[in-house]
Amino acid sequence: MILNRKDVLGLEDLEAEEILSILDMSERFRAVFDRPVRGVPIMRGRTVVNLFHEPSTRTRISFELAEKRLSADIINFQAASSSLRKGETLRDTAENLQAMRIDMLVVRHASAGAAHYLARVLKCSVINAGDGAHEHPTQGLLDIMTMRQRLGDLRGKKVTIIGDIAHSRVARSNIWGLTKLGAEVTLCGPPTMVPGGIDRLGVTVEYDLRRAVAQADVLNVLRIQLERHESKSFPSNREYHKLFGITEDVVRGLKPEAFVMHPGPMNRDVEIASEVADGPRQVILDQVANGVAVRMALIYLLSGGDPGALAGGDAE
């Protein structure tokens, strides 16, 4: 099926079927990376603007690489060096970009809802590259892609997400996507970091780390956002590590096939021990490679003309 929508703002609004077709397409793009030329010409002549209003290395580079590998023209727009600094509103900036005839806007912003707002006021496609603590759909998709590569169908598979659930857009996108695909999601973290009532999203909350991971097929370890914790939600990094850090000892208690994921950037020896981060049970670099493929698939699938014309099949 085709992605019949203008924007991708979160996994909350995607149907399970749409998620699966994005993942299938992502596998096709992943295969392109093994070719001598790691790109394809399909997006020639399209312009994509990356509007990053918040620092990001991995996501920005990954989007940029995805766009280049699709042969799109790209413009990078960093808040720090732009007129946003001179007091221009987000809307004015975006409308100026649109007046220059761009086809797609990728937006990262510290405020939840920023991408939704731009999607409403702009005619071009908008992809949310992270909005505040709300959603980070491409991270959610690449996490799910990585899980599906190892576990196959995710129905009934047990995923434990550990860490600062309250501040994590990655957690929210994971929860929406995974529950739609039928996975059983358990959240684990200090009570100060797990929002009350989150079980309404169809997840289980477990405050004891050992119990939370014992039956898990995969652990998704969130980054402790030290920069957001000036009024600390936990006493010290050492204490966090002791109670919720994924150490060799925790890993020894996992099911033999279970594996560990982390969206990066890692705080080594806070949420994840260095030995685990470099060890045989993690798939962190697979996540990074899958991220480029997922973003290529999403950009490609959103670049539709008239989807009705596709019914013609694979003739000639």
Partner: peptide
């Protein structure tokens, strides 16, 4: 040849891609 087509703007993306 899906990713090498010249008609993305008229046909839109093809959701069915076979292997190269």
């Amino acid at each position: 040849i899906t990713f090498y087509r010249d008609d993305l703007s008229t046909l839109g993306p093809n959701p069915k891609v076979a292997k190269t």
